[in-house]
Design a protein around this nucleic acid. Structure first.
Lengths: 239, 239
DNA sequence: CGACGATTTGATGTGTTTCAACGAAGGTGG
DNA sequence: CCACCTTCGTTGAAACACATCAAATCGTCG
C-alpha cells in the first residue's frame, strides 16, 4: 500500500533544461497569460477528483499522472515533459492525480481564460487540439503495450520512448536520464518494480544498455532495443 | 495468427437502433455535410497507416478500433457505438484499423471540410473537443484496467461499461447485447478468449449474470458486478 | 448432411508476481 | 561526526494467475 503523503524534503534529481528547448506551436497563450508555479519532487499539482480549476504546461522538470484503485494499486497514465499540456479535459474535475517527479516549473492558466482565448485564437485552438490528440495517440500505443506486450518488450518500448523524448529536448540519443524511480516505471508499464529491475539487468547482460547509475542509461544498441520493443525494424532510432 | 481478410458474408447480428437515439451536442455538421456509408460485419472502414481522408460518426451498429503487432498480436483500443466519432487526430494517417462488427452506418466527412466548419462553428468545435477528450478519458481508464486489474475485474468492468453504454442508448440496464465475439472482448481486455469464457462462467455460477445466448447478457446483480469491477461501491449501476 | 467458426471446459505450462533478503545512498538526530 | 533510519535498487526462491494446448459441443450455412 503506497502512502498518500506529500513530502517536500527528498533528493532532487538535477534535470534542468534550458527554456529555449520549449516547443509547442501556437501555445503562446500559456506564456502570455499563464502564471508560473513551481513544485518540489513528490509535491502534487492536483488530485484526482479535484475541481479542475487550472490547466498546465510544463516548463521544466517531469510530472507523473496516475490513477489509483481503492486498494492502492496504481497506474501511471503518462510522464509529462517540457512542453506537455496537463489537465485538458471537458470534465469539471481532474481525472487523475499529478505529482512532480523532479523540481518542476509550470505555466498555469485558468480553464475559463484558456477557453476564452481559444475562442479568439485559431492557432491556439489548433495547438490545443493537436496536443490532446497526440496525448490520445500515446495512450492508444500504451494500451497495446499494456494489453499485449511482454515485460521485456514493455521495458524496451519505454526506453525507446524516453530516448525519443530526450532527443526532442536536444539529447544525443545515447545517454538518457530517467527522472522516475523503478516503482514509477513499473506502475507505468503495468509490472512490478522487481520485474523492471530484472529486465534492466537482462538488457545490461546483453550489452544493449549500460547504467552509470540507476537514473542514467546509456543506449549501446538502439537497434536491438527497437527490435525488442516492437518485434520490428522500422524505427527512427537505428544506429 | 489472425488472418487479415475482409469477408462480407458473415452472420449478421441484428443490432438495430432507432435514429432518434443518436446523441452528441453540436455535431450537426456531420449530419448536414457528411455522406452516409454502410459496412457489413468484418468490413474495414480503414486500416492503420492509411491516409486519413475522412472522419466518421457512427449512426448505427458497432465499430472496433485496434492495433496489431508485427506477429499478429492484437489490442482493441475501443468499441465505437452510436454517436461516437472516429478518426479524429492531428496525424495525416490513421493510427489504428477500424472494422465493422455489425451492420454499420456512418456519416463520413472529409477532414478538410470538418476543419473548415470548425473554424466557423464554435459549437461544433466544442463538440469535437468534448468528444476527443472523453475518448482520452476512456483510454486512461482502460490503461488502469490493462495495467492493474485482474481478469475478473476486467470482465466485470467491461460488462459495467457495456451496460452504461446500453442505458445511454435507451436500454433498461438489465439485458445487454454484446455485438462482439469472445476474441474481440479478449483483445480489448488484454486476455485470451478462453479466460474471458471462464470468467463469464464464474459470473454465471455466482448468479451475477445470465446468458440466454453468447451475445445476450442479463445482469442479475449489478451491485456485485460493480464491486468486482472496482473493489468499490460508488456506482451508478446499483440495483 | 458435412464443414466451419465460435464457444466452452479441462489439463498443463510458464512468465510474472509475491515474498524475502541484502546493499547502497542520503537524510536525520544525537 | 557518526549511528540510525528510511528509501531505493537489486537479486533469489517459491507461488500463482493466466496462457497455452487440446478437445468436445453447438449453431449456422452451403
Amino acid at each position: 500500500m503506497r502512502p498518500i503523503v506529500i513530502e517536500a524534503n527528498t533528493p532532487v534529481n538535477a534535470f534542468l533544461q534550458s527554456d529555449d528547448a520549449i516547443y509547442g506551436a501556437g501555445l503562446d497563450a500559456f506564456t502570455s497569460i499563464g502564471s508560473l508555479g513551481t513544485y518540489a519532487p513528490k509535491e502534487s499539482l492536483f488530485w484526482e477528483g479535484d475541481l479542475a480549476e487550472f490547466q498546465y504546461r510544463v516548463v521544466r522538470g517531469t510530472v507523473c499522472l496516475y490513477k489509483l484503485l481503492p486498494d492502492g494499486r496504481r497506474q501511471v497514465a503518462r510522464f509529462c515533459h517540457v512542453g506537455d499540456l496537463i489537465g485538458l479535459s471537458a470534465r469539471t474535475n481532474y481525472q487523475y492525480t499529478a505529482d512532480a517527479l523532479t523540481d518542476v516549473t509550470v505555466q498555469r492558466i485558468r480553464r475559463a481564460e484558456l477557453d476564452a482565448h481559444m475562442e479568439d485564437d485559431p492557432t491556439l485552438r489548433r495547438g490545443v487540439l493537436a496536443s490532446i490528440s497526440e496525448e490520445l495517440n500515446a495512450a492508444q500505443n500504451q494500451l497495446l503495450l499494456l494489453g499485449r506486450k511482454s515485460a521485456s518488450e514493455r521495458v524496451a518500448s519505454f526506453l525507446v520512448t524516453m530516448t525519443e523524448q530526450a532527443m526532442r529536448q536536444g539529447g544525443d540519443g545515447h545517454s538518457v536520464f530517467l527522472p522516475m524511480t523503478r516503482v514509477d516505471i513499473a506502475d507505468y508499464l503495468g509490472l512490478t518494480h522487481e520485474t523492471v529491475c530484472r529486465v534492466f539487468s537482462q538488457l545490461k547482460a546483453q550489452g544493449i544498455v549500460r547504467f552509470s547509475d540507476p537514473h542514467d542509461v546509456e543506449i549501446s544498441d538502439a537497434t536491438a532495443l527497437a527490435v525488442l520493443a516492437d518485434g520490428d525494424m522500422d524505427t527512427r532510432l537505428c544506429a
